[in-house]
């Protein structure tokens, strides 16, 4: 219970900071939509190939937007030196990591929830397929687990803006594969048999990387 309270304190702190500074959600949202627009011109989808192209377009947009958003979350802490405050606070490292991960999940999730309807309108899909929510949640959890630890790690390097995607993308490939495939099944309304498989993959990834990252986080931010 104590753990949940600590996690919530961190998350609430991040939400307040974001509500006052408006640094993450709004710019990242605009970026995500811009990626969709650019893909429209790059691929020039026709009504016949949209169901094949659309999942890829959606997830490329989310991946790029997600990495930006995750990066901001720690850059802000680092710039203002508030990371020291976080480390001094009487909160376990695991709680700190979980809180950071959840707030990243919330911010990226917020971006995604707005981007999906825009995407559906632009690419003429069903406005918001309910199953997509599950996929979004699972994939974004895995993404923000890996993202939170690597963002905390990348602020210790000199070229952090470029180091973060270099570190993250190879590791989150399983998430991207599963998310794209699951989205494809939803958008093409093909039989849901394989769906379970992809959701299992996402859950497995989330669990494995949440556990590893929560333990390893302690070593990333010590001092």
């Amino acid at each position: 219970m104590e753990f949940a309270r600590q996690v919530w304190t961190i998350v609430w702190k991040d939400i307040i900071v974001e509500a006052r500074s408006r640094q993450i959600v709004a710019p990242v949202l605009v970026f995500a939509v811009l990626v969709l627009v650019i893909f429209n011109f790059a691929l020039s989808p026709t009504s016949s190939n949209i169901p094949q192209l659309a999942p890829g377009v959606l997830w490329v947009s989310f991946t790029f937007a997600g990495v930006l958003s995750v990066n901001r979350s720690f850059v802000l802490e680092n710039e203002n030196g508030s990371i020291l405050g976080l480390m001094l606070s009487p909160v376990s490292r695991e709680a700190l990591f979980t809180g950071k991960m959840l707030s990243n999940l919330i911010f990226i999730g917020a971006v995604e929830l707005v981007t999906v309807p825009v995407f559906s309108v632009l690419f003429n899909q069903e406005l918001f397929p309910p199953m997509l929510l599950v996929v979004l949640f699972l994939a974004t959890s895995g993404f923000s687990a890996v993202g939170s630890i690597f963002a905390a790690l990348a602020i210790n390097t000199r070229f952090r803006e470029i180091m973060l995607p270099l570190l993250m993308f190879p590791v989150v490939v399983p998430v991207i594969i599963s998310a794209v495939k699951a989205t494809e099944i939803i958008l093409t309304s093909s039989p849901a048999g394989d769906m379970i498989k992809w959701l299992e993959m996402l859950v497995a990834f989330d669990l494995i990387f949440f556990l590893i990252a929560a333990v390893a986080f302690e070593y990333v931010i010590e001092e």
């Binding site: 890996v146 630890i149 210790n156 390097t157 180091m163 190879p170 590791v171 399983p174 594969i177 070593y219």
Partner: peptide
């Protein structure tokens, strides 16, 4: 590219662990 020498080895150690765990996951996906 680490900002301090000692930090670099600690950060790298974390990547060494996560990266190795990732390889089988990528394979199965």
């Amino acid at each position: 590219y680490s900002s301090e020498a000692g930090r670099g080895s600690r950060m790298a150690a974390v990547i060494g662990i996560i990266g190795f765990a990732d390889v089988p996951v990528v394979y199965y996906s």
